[in-house]
Computed example of a mutant assay.
Amino acid sequence: MDPRRTVPEVVLDPDLPASVAGTLRSSPAILRAVRAGAVPPPSGPTPGMVLVVTSFLLVALMVTGPWGMVAIGAVVAAFGGTQALAGDPKRRDARRRLRLAAAHAGRFILPEDLDAGCRELLARAQSAVAGVLGSQVNGAGLLDAIDNSVTLPAEVWRLAQRLADLTRTRAEHDRIVPRDVPDDIAGVFSPYDDALDRARRSLTSRVTTLEEYAREVRRADAVYRAYRQLGVLRERTPDYERLLAATAEDRLAVPHIDRLGLQAKDVERVFHASIDEARRAGGHLLSLAAA
């Protein structure tokens, strides 16, 4: 499995509660609105509305007395409750999602938060992770050197945060550094350029490590499929032995039969070797994440 992505997906903090993460993931337009500066409306009555209602009740108190004001207040409250219940459910849901996204604005990263180079790196990382998590050997629990379902989303989140930081710093750098720097002082800016370049190379290395892990897992997947198919054939070995015995002399059939068993052991050795390679690649990724 080798899914190729050209555009990255939204990245969420893996520590978000599942219900919050599900709501945010299903609301990309609202996440973009929050990132663009949208502010959720207040959940309660506005100060202007409170002033109007208070003034109305004071007038009612002066005109009708205490009991009249209580009666009018009850009518106003009932009308307000009816209006709230009769409001558009879609608008209420949109406001709820907007408030939730605004409350967690620092816990998601959009493709738009990254420049072109950083978006490409994030897309590559997400492709690699999707390949590992969707693999048969991962589903069968054979990659026990690394808890992929926990470690890989956390690695993508850390990577996305650093890519967003690099994007912001690089954009600020481009705004500050003049384009027409005289040659005799251009060297003054080189340490800053080098810092940006080192950060980019470091992040590229992390993505490459993820891709190497995904490649080892793909190889392990292919061998695992062959290994399982061979297991089915091994159950039918007596049928093949019978065919060989029936079509050749026993002294010729025996080497063929022995070869079947040896080939099965060879595939089994390759399978275990490929799993070990994938585990080592995962262990290397884990050591990088801990660094």
Rank of each mutant, 00 (worst) to 15 (best):
K90T: 15
E112N: 08
R99P: 02
G134F: 08
R96F: 03
S135E: 13
V63Y: 00
V150E: 12
A84Q: 12
F108G: 07
Q161I: 00
R124D: 14
P178D: 11
G73H: 04
D144F: 11
P153Y: 08
R95K: 07
G141K: 05
G81S: 05
L133F: 06
P111T: 04
R99Y: 05
V59M: 02
L122I: 08
V177H: 04
G48N: 04
G139M: 10
E155L: 12
R107W: 02
D113H: 04
A86S: 11
G73W: 07
D113N: 07
L121H: 04
R91S: 08
V150F: 03
L133C: 09
A86G: 08
L114M: 13
A101R: 03
A130Q: 08
R168M: 10
G68H: 06
A154H: 02
R107T: 01
A60C: 13
N148D: 15
M49K: 04
P111Y: 10
A145Q: 13
L57I: 05
I176R: 11
W67I: 12
T64I: 09
A128I: 03
V150S: 08
N138Q: 13
G48I: 10
R162Y: 00
A102C: 00
R175W: 05
L159H: 02
Q83P: 01
A130D: 15
G87C: 05
L159C: 05
R97S: 13
A145G: 14
Q126G: 11
P45G: 08
A60L: 09
T82M: 12
R158S: 10
A103H: 08
M69Y: 01
E120W: 10
L61S: 12
V150D: 10
V137M: 06
A77S: 12
L98H: 02
A102F: 02
G117S: 15
F108Y: 15
A145D: 15
G139H: 03
N138E: 15
A125I: 07
W67T: 12
A123K: 11
R92C: 13
A77Y: 11
P47F: 14
N148F: 12
D144P: 01
C118A: 15
P89K: 09
V75T: 07
Q136P: 09
P111A: 02
L166S: 05
R97Q: 14
A123R: 00
D93N: 08
A84H: 13
M69S: 07
R168A: 15
I109Q: 07
R119T: 12
I176M: 07
L61Y: 06
A86V: 09
A160K: 06
V137F: 06
T82V: 13
P47I: 03
D147H: 11
I176L: 13
A74G: 08
Q161K: 07
E172P: 02
R96C: 08
V129Y: 06
R124V: 09
G141S: 08
A84W: 10
G81P: 01
Q83C: 03
G81Y: 06
Q161C: 13
L58C: 04
A130C: 11
A71G: 05
M69K: 13
T167F: 01
T167S: 09
M49F: 15
V177E: 15
